[in-house]
Structures are given as C-alpha cells and as structure tokens.
Write a protein that binds this DNA or RNA. Structure first.
Length: 477
DNA sequence: ATGTTC
C-alpha cells in the first residue's frame, strides 16, 4: 500500500482510489512516513474510500495507527443525504476526549506533599483502571434520559460545576442527535461508570504550562507559563463500548436489508437516514453526552481536591475549564456548502478563527484543541488554521502508537518505564499494568504536532509539561 | 478502548 502513496506537498502523501475516484490523504513528516507507518493503517483508509457517499478525501493524521475498521488518527466524511454512518469509524470509545483546566496556581506552590494529597483525594472519588464503576454510589444508577436530552447541564444544575463550564464544552456538552430510546439494553446495563477514568491511555494529569508559542492567544486562553494545569483524558467507558459493539454487529448483519456494502466488519455501516443509522446516531449521541458528563463530574472532584489542599477560595485558584473536546465522534457539519457527517476517530476538531461553529467565547481565535501526549510526556494546545479545511477541520488527537499493546508489554520492564517517564510521578500501585502505555510505545509528540504545524494546518499555542499522572490501578483501589 | 476470549 505504502508504495502507492506519492508526496504531493509539505508532509502530505496521496493516493487515489481509481474505482471510486476518492483521494486518500495522509499527513506525515518524512520521518513518520519512513519509520512509523503501518501498511495496514493505509489499507484501512483505502477501505473507507469504498463506502457509499464518502466525500474525497479520506484523511489520515500524523498519529495514524491501525484500529478497528478506520485507523486511529483517521477522518472520513460522508454525504448527509446519500451517505452512510459507520459505528466502527467512530470507534469503541465514543467521545473519548480531553478537558483542560487552567489554574492561577504557580507551579512552585504545588509542593510534592500537596500534589500527593490532591491525587489521593481525587483517587478516592474517581476510580481508575479497567472495569471500575463509580465510587460515588449515586452515579451508578443515573437518568439516561436526562443525560441524553439535557447533557452536562443536568449535572451542573445538580451542583456539580459552574454554570459557565458548559460554554467551554464542545456543543455545550449536549449532542443534538442524542436519544436515550436508541440505547440497547445491554449498554444501559453498563452505564454505571460515571466519574471514572478507565484504562488504556486514559488519565488525569497535573502539570505546569511549559513553552508558550503565541503570547496573545495563550493569555486569552489563560495559559501562563509556569502555572499549574489539569488535563482529564477519558471517554464513555463500557457504555460507549457496548453501543459500538452492538451497532457494528447490527450494521454488518443488516447489509442486505440496508443495501450497503462494507469491505470489512470494522467498517460495517448503514445509510444515515435508515432505522439502523438513526438509532446509532441517537445512541452515539447519548454516549457522547455521557462522556462529557464523565469529565464534568471528574472536574468537580478535582476542584474539591484543590480547594481542600490549598484552603483558598475557588476564585483565587482559578480552576477554570479551558475547553473539553471529543476525538472519537461523528458530527453533522457543513463543508464546502454541503452537509456532511464527519467521522473523526482519533482526530480532534479544530475550527479556525471566525468559523461559525466555534463557541461564542472562541469565535475570534478558534477554539483550543487539546492534544494529549503519552504518559509522562508533553501535551499541546493548538488552534486550527484556515488551511485545515483540507482535513474537514481536523487535527491529530495524540502521539499515536508505534507498537501494539501486546508487544509493548513484552518489550519493556517496570524499571525502563520509570526511566522513560523521567521525573513525572505516576500515581498507580501497579506499574506492570501500565507497560503498554510506556512513552516509547508511542511516537514523539513534538514530531507529530509539528507535522501539521509545518503543513500550515495548525498553530501551537502552548506546550504542557506533566508533573504527575493518575492512571491505571489507582493508589487506593 | 474494553467486565482485555459471549
């Protein structure tokens, strides 16, 4: 597959699917193209270019790696009228995403002792690790109808946050498609994981703002060098996973009935306006709201922990939500004068300045797109530039894996893991369970972010340096 | 990513 791709401009490789006349674009530096590109991930983009109603180009991001159906770091838009929706092209973890919280706390004031105490308090209320359900009993039995129809405001009105938080969440934490009536029973049974982190690459990170690349925008975002930030990376947990599994199977089984075709199970799809399509979007929207609520409830306990340890009032500490953005989702968007369904899987929406879909407060700058690095490595805040219409306004979502979880577990030891994360404190009692998350199992975040910067699709605003990460089997569990 | 092989 790789040999069929030709470099057509700075960090952009292309091939054409001659049968369907759809282009495939992959954004990679020469180093990423030559050293870290799996042929299978390109084949997955090619497969996506065969679906009904797909709009050229199918896009690969610099953090591309093989996934289920569409690669992670993949974008596929389909025509809203004629096209299909694919559950696998959104991914298992519906609305996996990140939320960045800024503070007015200089990093020097966050002593090791305070940091440990904060992490201890957070982990008491926010479990981490695979399969964990809510520590707070009330969150195990929740009103899915309210989550679908009201979204994050439902919990804010109940006291878990500030009114203004919702203005700094993508779609105000309420996806228009959401319909709890479309959620399969098997998924409803798994909706007991609100206010949990989960496993894999999910985490809560506390760090300090490192470099600032654009003084004006950084200041406007409240990103000041040397100040403490908190980054929350998690999604819809087992709930979204179950929805993806159920609908993927249903879409695959109903191919004849729906008159659709998918080359592989992972891209099983249904016409957007078919029963299966409408129901998937209703369930996906509910899971997306669930994930926004998950990050909101975690935010509440993060704030509580800081308030308790610093013993200052909330205004003094800041603890403001900068932005909360999804990187596994399908959205109805206008591109080139046409309504499309943009599937982003391991891809972050980054709307440029002036784009009408920006939240009101970010109209002039474009909203912040937050790109987490791997455990113990830097993260970035970037904004999209006009040119990123070439990717349906998408940027990468992280660093991207360079090896499978299985291989990473064989390759690295706990000692090597600690060396790789340098001085970052890893709050987990079971480092062994984190070997697949070792930084060297991922690409270099600088290389990945700079690939789109050099291609002039995006602009870095600030770089974030972690001090501590809470993930995997938490300290208390 | 995931009650990591319903």
């Amino acid at each position: 597959m790789k040999e069929k791709f030709k470099k057509i401009s700075m960090n952009l490789y292309q091939m054409k699917n001659e049968e369907t006349n759809i282009d495939i674009h992959v954004y990679l530096s020469d180093k990423l193209f030559n050293e870290f590109l799996e042929d299978e991930s390109l084949r997955q983009l090619y497969n996506a270019s065969m679906l009904k109603g797909v709009i050229s180009p199918v896009v690969g991001m610099p953090d591309i790696h093989t996934g289920f159906g569409l690669p992670i770091g993949g974008g596929m838009a389909t025509d809203w009228q004629e096209g299909v929706v694919s559950a696998g092209a959104v991914g298992m973890d519906i609305n996996c995403g990140v939320r960045l919280i800024t503070t007015r706390i200089p990093a020097e004031e966050l002593t090791k002792e305070r940091l440990r105490k904060i992490l201890e308090i957070i982990s008491e209320y926010v479990p981490s690790g695979v399969g964990k359900s809510s520590a707070v009993k009330a969150f195990r039995k929740i009103d899915l109808e309210a989550i679908a129809s009201i979204g994050v405001s439902y919990f804010i009105d109940a006291g878990y946050g500030r009114k203004e938080d919702v203005l700094r969440i993508e779609d105000e934490g309420r996806i228009p498609f959401a319909d709890a009536g479309c959620v399969p029973k098997s998924a409803k049974e798994r909706a007991d994981q609100l206010c949990t982190i989960g496993g894999g690459n999910h985490f809560i990170e506390i760090g300090r703002i490192g470099s600032v690349f654009d003084e004006n925008i950084a200041e406007f975002f409240g990103l000041q060098k040397g100040f403490v930030y908190i980054l929350i990376h998690t999604g819809s947990r087992g709930f979204g996973h179950q929805i993806c599994t159920e609908f993927s199977k249903k879409m695959w089984d109903n191919q004849d009935k729906n008159k659709t075709f998918a080359p592989v199970k992972g891209l099983a799809c249904a016409p957007i306006h078919s029963k299966d399509g409408i129901e998937y979007l209703g369930a996906m929207g509910t899971a997306a709201n669930y994930a926004f609520c998950n990050r909101q409830l975690i935010t509440y306990f993060v704030r509580e922990a800081f308030l308790k340890v610093f013993k200052k009032d909330e205004k003094e500490l800041g603890l403001d939500v900068l932005y909360d953005v999804a990187h596994n989702i399908a959205k109805k968007e206008m591109h080139g004068g046409k309504w499309l369904l943009v599937h982003r899987k391991g891809a972050t929406r980054a709307l440029p300045a002036g784009h009408p879909d920006n939240p009101q407060i970010y109209k002039k700058t474009g909203h912040p797109a937050v790109i987490p690095g791997s455990m113990g490595t830097a993260s970035y805040v970037v904004i999209g530039l006009e040119n990123n219409r070439a990717t349906f306004n998408s940027v990468n979502h992280g660093a991207g894996r360079v090896m499978s979880r299985k291989r990473a577990k064989e390759e690295f030891t706990e000692k090597e893991l600690l060396k790789q994360v340098e001085n970052v404190f890893i709050a987990s009692k079971d480092l062994k369970s984190l070997l697949d998350e070792a930084p060297l199992a991922y690409k270099d975040i600088d290389e990945v972010v700079n690939t789109l910067v050099d291609a002039k699709l995006t602009m870095p605003v600030a770089k974030l340096k972690p001090l501590a990460v809470l993930k995997g089997e938490g300290e208390e569990s």
